[in-house]
Design a binder for these strands. Sequence first.
DNA 1: ACCGTAGTACGGCAGCTGTCAAACTACGAG
DNA 2: CTCGTAGTTTGACAGCTGCCGTACTACGGT
Lengths: 127, 127
Amino acid sequence: MSRMTTVAAHTTGSRALAHPERAEIRLEAVLHALSDPMRLAVVREMAASQGPDSPGLSCSHFDLPVTKSTSTHHFRVLRESGVIEQVYRGTAKLNGLRRGDLDALFPGLLDSVLDAATRQADRLSEH
Amino acid sequence: MSRMTTVAAHTTGSRALAHPERAEIRLEAVLHALSDPMRLAVVREMAASQGPDSPGLSCSHFDLPVTKSTSTHHFRVLRESGVIEQVYRGTAKLNGLRRGDLDALFPGLLDSVLDAATRQADRLSEH
DNA sequence: ACCGTAGTACGGCAGCTGTCAAACTACGAG
DNA sequence: CTCGTAGTTTGACAGCTGCCGTACTACGGT
């Protein structure tokens, strides 16, 4: 019941990750995904490195203070909630915010959250 | 270690609930509070019954499909995260969104979330 | 074909979450 | 004062969360 990893998926060096369709994205799941400090930080960094209008995927590299398995876990939560998309490029992974989908479903939400996160970071750092 | 309920707090019919100061409100906690369907529904109803510019507290009554203890729990999460404020008026409780504080800390966030929730509700209902 | 590197899967664990039922406290009305 | 109603507290319980370590898979280079 667990010997199916090698079976399919060899589309010329691009394993496919399961992403929710735009219509399947749920606000509660998005908010939940963003409510973890680590994940919020990842999303902030992604937004910063991608600029305001996304070219889609960027190849940013994240150095999180957790083990690889924990990273995988957080990225999975972000992906399954519809906040980010991920594709493989060889041995690395390309990450990208799903700005288009999020802005279409929930206009202004992502920007508000990112702005709020920046404000809070500023507020807390000028202690 | 648990016989202190009757001790203090009898300020003329207004037990005081612990609320975070504005400066103590954390974005992550707010997002987490809003990421539960039940709590998001409560906040939506509160926002609707209070109108866009809040007169402070409104006396709305909520009929949640859970027991009283579960309600208490959800209202506590909302209060402790800084999303709502509560005061007693006799036997009932006055609830109110902390619009002022939230808008000051995270401009646009609450409105984006409320708007997103409305859009999602509309989208899901026209199935 | 063989390594090394990058990521995933699995199992485990402490802690938190949403829920309930039952016992309790607080206020208002009679 | 006594009762009923509104809300809180406590304890319980299943399920999820964040975290880790180990074992595994996949790709690229040599």
